[in-house]
Design a protein around this nucleic acid. Structure first.
Lengths: 206, 206
DNA sequence: GCGCCGATATATCGGAGCGATATATCGGCT
DNA sequence: AGCCGATATATCGCTCCGATATATCGGCGC
């Protein structure tokens, strides 16, 4: 799972572990903030598998002007510090990771794999975040598979909600929330599917 | 985490592993269906710690009429089979688990622990499911702590949503969903808090 | 009656992810 | 000079999961 995320980010830009972590927490959503205890082992796995190559960066930045990607806080802060003084980066030396052709192939494989079983929300969100690398028909497939899973889940959720009626108020509230969330997620997917089928050519790809 | 769930269910009724798993998937919500690979090890941990005691059931049921808990499918099916024939249960012999006083204490400890750090959704849901075992003021505390976490998360989520504007449509949609879900969860908690503060004495406790 | 399928049930294994912690190195503040 | 805090990489122990193995019984076809 992490492998997919790492490779996806490295496809855009070479990055070192620490920076990778920040972007990862953005990509995966506001929750689920990827621990270093999973990131570094995952990077090592990828390196052993030949999916990424690491270059020990001295102290000059690997890229003259690292692509800001967003006009966000980090960028502005860095710019501010840069005007104050041409400071050399603080802290320990970095290992900058770069994706290889093997990694590209691995990424495509992980992205397309149709995990029929298992309704892993995080994995779906991750795939969706990289949906732009998927051909349009596979995008629809991804969304429809997810929709089917949610419909199944909704049935279980409604059954559970019914049977929760003779439990206490907390169980009921929990079950109601569950049902509503699933319903909303389904209509969210329906909106995405509708957008997918009326192309309009406005999609901003990279 | 599983320990808390197991002990909470065993507080109501003695259960064997397989049945425990079914109830667990209900309690934890429609997703996250607790694997045997975590359940049985967790039961062994609890047994070693003296929180539960296992009795190897022969083939007579440990309880003459196992409490149905819900008038649900399981119950009706069992009743149906019972009318057809006084069948002896099929399958391998069971190990029925019973909670001990040590387990009771452990449960209280796990339920009350104020995990300031870490915004683990599942753990919160689990605690809420057993909120009836908490004194009213601690219930409010639990809800308010969760609310604070969600407010923090909402801030991150909104920031991320803003910075997602110059990424593709999928990232934007993902970020919007994130924000909306968090907002809805906060108002859900507000409703629970309001209900908590206007007691009305209607709460159905056990 | 016999064999086999499917349900019931317990158990283990390898791997992934997490939280805590250790280690290293530098800038800046006092 | 000394220390703090930010940056960065890395490891340890643990929990949980999915897959798989194992055991045992009822019921079905033939």
């Amino acid at each position: 799972m992490l492998e997919l995320a790492i490779l996806g980010l490295l496809k855009e830009q070479d990055l070192h572990g620490y920076e990778l972590k920040k972007r990862l927490t953005e990509t995966l959503g506001s929750f689920s903030s990827v621990s270093f205890g999973s990131l570094y082992p995952a990077l090592n796995r990828l390196e052993r598998a030949g999916g990424v190559a690491a270059t020990e960066a001295g102290d000059e930045p690997a890229v003259a002007v690292p692509v800001p990607m967003t006009g966000s806080l980090d960028g502005e802060l860095a710019a501010y510090r840069a005007t104050r003084r041409p400071t050399r980066r603080a802290g320990r030396s970095r290992k900058v990771y770069r994706i290889t052709p093997r990694g590209d192939a691995l990424f495509a494989e992980l992205l397309a794999a149709d995990n029929a079983a298992g309704d892993d929300e995080r994995l779906f969100h991750l795939r969706l975040a990289f949906a732009r690398f998927l051909p349009p028909d596979e995008r629809v497939g991804l969304l429809e598979r997810r929709r089917a899973q949610l419909v199944e889940r909704l049935a279980r959720s409604r059954a559970n909600r019914k049977s929760a009626r003779d439990r206490d108020a907390y169980a009921q509230s929990l079950a109601e929330r569950d049902t509503e969330l699933t319903e909303r997620d389904i209509s969210w997917l329906d909106r995405l599917l509708a957008a997918e089928r009326t192309p309009k050519g406005k999609a901003k790809s990279r």
